[in-house]
Design a protein around this nucleic acid. Sequence first.
DNA 1: CCATCAGTTCAATAAATCTTGAACTAACCT
DNA 2: AGGTTAGTTCAAGATTTATTGAACTGATGG
Lengths: 114, 114
Amino acid sequence: MCMARELHHPDRDQIDLSAVLEALSEPVRRDIVLRLLVEGEAPCQIFDNFAPKTNLSYHYARLREAGVTRTRISGPYRMISVRTEDLAARFPGLLEAIVAAAGGKASPAPAGTA
Amino acid sequence: MCMARELHHPDRDQIDLSAVLEALSEPVRRDIVLRLLVEGEAPCQIFDNFAPKTNLSYHYARLREAGVTRTRISGPYRMISVRTEDLAARFPGLLEAIVAAAGGKASPAPAGTA
DNA sequence: CCATCAGTTCAATAAATCTTGAACTAACCT
DNA sequence: AGGTTAGTTCAAGATTTATTGAACTGATGG
């Protein structure tokens, strides 16, 4: 019913390993993270060709609630970024290993996005 | 209906990142892997206090089909082990990072198992 | 104010996952 | 053969996850 002005993000210490692995086990979510690591902070719309909007919204929420991403409201946009420092502090090397593992077959690099 | 004599294991090259992450996102399965890394190859029964047998059997299958573990039939036992070399070759550093991340709150070390 | 744009929430459905009891298999022991 | 042990398969229910259309919110621009 309400659209919270401040979105919930878990504290660094509360980031749960199961939640992170689960979040990153989903290909669309992993592609989002991969792309964000290249782009840095970005508006959500850069992912509009990854899936229908309503589905993306669901995936954003899962990533955010798992502590993998941070979402900031900036005017009409949601700026999303990976919580690299928090993840590195809590689970050293984990994100790097997953990114490296996914690197070979990363996001399909849809035409007209670079 | 049939109980295959040879269990199916994916080839090293076919181990899928999503499947591995998904397999290791489950706490019971992660605890099994953690314990196996300490014990080396072990009969399944060492996990009998982790969960009901029928449930363990399900988790063994998921780990095996994801390419995380290998199961070998030895007389009346199933010997299970982690495919550390295959995982290291396919996804370098991934298993180590997950183990390190889980290390702090590893298996509950149930009494009378050491 | 009205329209639009970015993205969410709701509701409903489909699909996958988890869990367990009951019945089973295969190997071993006496 | 009969009994035991190790672990699986089947069937069914409970829970979770994924996906989508419709309706919404909140900010911006005419």
